[in-house]
Computed example of a mutant assay.
Amino acid sequence: MKTVSLGAARPSSVKFRMPTRDNLVPIRVDVEVDGQRYRDAFTWNPCDPDSEIISFAKRTAKDLKLPANFVPQMLHSIQGQLAEFRSYEGEEMQIREKIVPLKIDLRINNTVIRDQFLWDIGNLDSDPEEFARTLCDDLNITDPEVGPAIAVSIREQLYEIASQSVSAMREAARVSKKGRRAPEFASNSKAMNNSLDLFKYFGSKGSVVRKRKEWYLYEPVVDVITNEEVGVTDATEEINSRNA
């Protein structure tokens, strides 16, 4: 039974960043040109110069033997996502102790993994990559692509929560300037709506313990599917993505 310790009280707000130890942005690219498709997910340091993006796109296209016209499409996708992230920089976001449920539902090559767990978004020393490596070790997952995919999924959910926090702070400031009482921080984020405010329930010191009757909800599920099943799944996902 896992316990999440809160420890000392933390500041209520900080300048926007990923609520993790390393300020890495989750990037997801899905580009199709002339019937060929490139899909990938990875993290990027927003402090890196844009010239690195150009080098990355050219190198990726060369390594995968993609036509040269993939490069500008990849650049547009990556730069657009980084621009959105940078638009929040300098803004205030709240980081009160909040435990949020995160979910993983991924298929990477022949491995299918589903899991859910609690995450303290106020812990700016958290490390999704280390968590993913430990999870893969615990579950005896040997595919080296699974760990990074899990880390990206975690970062995507944390990024949504952080950006929603900034939006809520902006709205609170706007309302306050009009002379009305600013609302307390709230979010339309699905993850944030499911969160537990630990100050409210436990104060500045406490722990969250999973109830025995809820243990089964947090058990990870790992399946290894055959190549034939992979082919069927790929075809289904391709059809669904085109019809979306």
Rank of each mutant, 00 (worst) to 15 (best):
K98A: 07
K98W: 11
V100K: 00
P101C: 12
P101K: 03
L102M: 13
K103C: 04
K103G: 03
I104H: 03
I104E: 05
D105L: 01
R107L: 09
I108K: 13
N109A: 12
T111A: 08
T111F: 04
T111I: 15
V112M: 06
V112Y: 05
I113K: 05
R114W: 01
R114D: 04
D115G: 03
D115V: 02
D115Y: 10
Q116P: 04
Q116L: 07
L118I: 12
D120V: 13
D120C: 14
I121K: 12
G122W: 03
G122C: 07
L124S: 03
D125I: 12
S126G: 06
S126E: 08
D127E: 10
P128K: 00
P128M: 02
E129C: 09
E129Y: 08
E129S: 14
E129R: 10
E129M: 14
E130T: 15
F131T: 04
A132M: 03
A132N: 07
T134G: 02
T134Y: 02
C136W: 03
D137N: 12
D137W: 02
D137V: 07
L139K: 04
N140H: 04
N140Y: 01
I141H: 07
D143A: 05
P144M: 09
P144Q: 09
E145L: 13
V146I: 12
V146E: 11
P148E: 12
A149T: 12
A149Q: 09
I150L: 07
A151L: 00
A151H: 02
A151F: 02
S153V: 01
S153H: 01
I154Q: 01
I154C: 01
I154N: 03
I154Y: 00
Q157D: 10
Q157Y: 00
Y159S: 13
S165N: 10
V166E: 14
V166T: 13
S167Q: 13
S167F: 07
S167V: 07
R170K: 15
A172H: 03
A173I: 03
R174P: 02
V175R: 11
V175A: 06
K177N: 14
K177L: 14
K178T: 13
G179C: 13
G179T: 15
R181C: 03
A182V: 04
A182D: 01
